[in-house]
Design a protein around this nucleic acid. Sequence first.
DNA 1: CGCGGAATTGAAAATACTCAAAATTAGTGG
DNA 2: CCACTAATTTTGAGTATTTTCAATTCCGCG
Lengths: 261, 261
Amino acid sequence: MTHAASPAERSPVQTDTPLNVGALKVSCANCSMHQLCLPMGLEDADIDRLDKIIGRRRRLARDEHLYKAGDPFRSLYAVRFGHFKTYQINAAGEAQITGFQMAGELLGMDAISGDRHHCDAVALEDSEVCEIPFANLEEMFGQVPALLRHFHRMMSQEITREQNVMLLLGNMRAEQRFAVFLVNLGARYATRGYSATRFQLRMSREDIGNYLGLTIESISRLLSRFRKMGLLQVDKREVTLLEPARLKAMAAGTEQCSPMA
Amino acid sequence: MTHAASPAERSPVQTDTPLNVGALKVSCANCSMHQLCLPMGLEDADIDRLDKIIGRRRRLARDEHLYKAGDPFRSLYAVRFGHFKTYQINAAGEAQITGFQMAGELLGMDAISGDRHHCDAVALEDSEVCEIPFANLEEMFGQVPALLRHFHRMMSQEITREQNVMLLLGNMRAEQRFAVFLVNLGARYATRGYSATRFQLRMSREDIGNYLGLTIESISRLLSRFRKMGLLQVDKREVTLLEPARLKAMAAGTEQCSPMA
DNA sequence: CGCGGAATTGAAAATACTCAAAATTAGTGG
DNA sequence: CCACTAATTTTGAGTATTTTCAATTCCGCG
């Protein structure tokens, strides 16, 4: 199993080897995601405490499940590196992807209400997560108000994010949905220190289509059309946004391009 | 201003008058919603504490705003009686309704992440909410773990609810969306002790359409079609589900009916 | 080098939308 | 309480966006 080079650990000392992941001495303090992730804004002493409750890091190969709907809920997971998708399956067996998660983002918050997971989480590439046993986290909430406050912010952000997807699915045309998707990905990579205009799509066209409520063919046509319009370049899964301003305008609904042809 | 009779207060002593709402001695313990609402599962002593931090009840007339996007976030609101809708407005000025809330449900959780509300909340009829100052609630979290736990469940439920709407908007046809909508409303009324098969739609056809990602004309046609199929009766805004089992099957995707004609 | 999954492209079909008009309902004032 | 007006809802006809079905092409991988 190979995995892409990752900036999750910027400590000069290389502590990771694939063979003894469970025993590693890795800390939230050393993690490049600690400004985005659960420990955001915590004092060093509290970060240490958080480190102690974090169960273990867990490596997942591409296409491996982190959890499935129906699994008992015990832990939240913070993505250390790699990418995930979460999806729900309806009674008829069709899936709806509800999100793509990247480093610093939290998985499993929808499972707190029941005692079981409501969706499936799958690695889109070789990835690593920090397992955060929820019972321990709850204990710590009582002792570290700043942690509780930030946890609430993260849950609230998830609600807001989903409301934005509802807006997208409920009243945007295909081209606008796709523009929103690209601009949003770029913004999230920018937050993580990567380019906002040039990145790999870690998910298949089919996944994108499913997430955006469109077919794989529609995604393919949109990519071709955007390319012909000079909005972007595509090379397999690498996308370069050539006119981010116009894409943002399309995403906002200010500018629109010609119909699907 | 008149308002419909409400079962929110089942205490034999009538304590409400429209003129001194702020000074009322109403308690979560007396509220018929306390099994659904924030105080669920709390001991009497803790319910009393919760009562003390609840700022005031607030009456809203039909079409009145509880809050607007951009308003500073200070409080959550629990619906005591009546109905609300929440909606987001995109850059182009179009609205997307993100939910309809009824008694016992919590409003404003999406605003915790920023310091401002992200959506608008409007009363669909004359309604009343309990204002819960969030700073006070946070203080109480440290003292009453059961309250914190239930609050997390409510936030998580909101995430799950929105994921279900994403599933609806992302891969259901019009008739299935509408069936899901009707069955869901019925289930929520049943939880509150009302009929699951006969209820008033508190929202306009336009609101329903907006929520379901459809036009008002489509909703009207769906109602007519379902009526002709013997699935339901409609009289203005009163709906009677005549074949709940078939509607549930449609909602689940098991059964489908003829195309839109 | 060839196999198989993924992606692209084209043509036809379908679902839902838009526009328009009529009918019904709700709100307002006499 | 009734009449009038405005708003909402229903229905119809034509249209458009996106889907479906089908055929190729591209690429990764053994």
